[in-house]
Design a protein around this nucleic acid. Structure first.
Lengths: 176, 176
DNA sequence: GCAAATTAATGATTTATTCAAG
DNA sequence: CTTGAATAAATCATTAATTTGC
């Protein structure tokens, strides 16, 4: 397999907007059984659950790393369930988050994925989801804290670090 | 806090492409109104991870660190405008929708996009978004119609006198 | 000590809301 | 106003922690 063009779906269509590799696997285990009474015009492909859950031999869309060298597998290589981040990965992600990154764009996701890939199997969408979830859940936490906040006018313990060096070259700051 | 809800109906079986921020010319103020109580982090990560936080977007030019780009001229590109579906495309999509398709998976999207590509420029995410929006807005319309039965402002242009009961087979929304 | 049962975290999807182009 | 595009909120589903009984 020399230079073979992968599916067009990977490259050609999303070239304008940065996109990331997303797997074509991992579908919900719920019954793929549609109500067959309706005529689904497009042939709903028979969902081969097993083949989807085993992406190893499946066709990759993009971002296929040259080698996967799973022979040694430092990590669990969970056999095709959901991503289970390692401690290093989490650490880096949290660092990025604390650094101000909230919704990285495709370029950033690509790079992050590449970096985190050194510590374990990971895909771009994992990074994407992680930021989504982390952001949302941090907000939840904060809100919860705010609700029960009418007790001590001053936050005990945590002195809100106002020593922020305000000016920073964070261009990736979309929200806030 | 276990949510024991069992859905027996076929729910989504779609891989969900993470719609990455394109960041081309999409500046969304969207004041999140987040209470700024929490972290205003802006602490430079001690590592070189800052390389992750590269300035976003920029078509393909890298190297220029500072991007104070003006939103002046950069929109004559055919990649910058949004998808404008043709009549054939809409027709096919609606046909598929009426046929029961609601959230096509990646495979299906791929095929649909390929087909629709014959009639005009289109990308996979367009198909994805179309289904999302169409589903949501059909629901809105129905709801509006149901609520405003006694209303008689003006004859609605579209006679969507069909399929009101069909959607009842779905779960009734749990409020909220 | 261990494994089944239970609970807590959190990854992955779906839905609702919002913004802006045409 | 219509509607493509994007994000946030809500929800589902799976894995890790943990409890419990032996």
């Amino acid at each position: 397999m020399g230079s073979m063009k992968v599916h067009q779906f990977a490259r050609g269509f999303w070239e304008h907007e940065p996109s990331l590799t997303l797997g074509c696997k991992r579908l919900r285990p719920l019954a793929p059984k549609l109500s067959n009474t309706d005529n689904t015009p497009t042939t709903v492909p028979p969902f081969d659950l097993k083949s989807f859950i085993r992406p190893e031999s499946g066709p990759r869309k993009l971002g296929s790393s040259d080698d996967k060298r799973e022979t040694a597998h430092v990590d669990t290589h969970p056999g095709g369930t959901r991503w289970n981040p390692t401690q290093e990965q989490i650490g880096i992600l949290e660092m990025l988050y604390r650094g101000g990154m909230r919704t990285p764009n495709a370029q950033q996701i690509e790079q992050i994925t590449a970096q985190l890939g050194k510590y374990g199997k990971i895909e771009g969408k994992n990074v994407f989801y992680w930021f989504q979830n982390h952001k949302a859940r941090e907000r939840q936490k904060q809100k919860r804290n705010n609700l029960g906040l009418n007790h001590s006018p001053r936050a005990p313990g945590v002195t809100t670090t106002t020593t922020i060096s305000s000016s920073l070259t964070h261009e990736s700051r979309v929200g806030v």
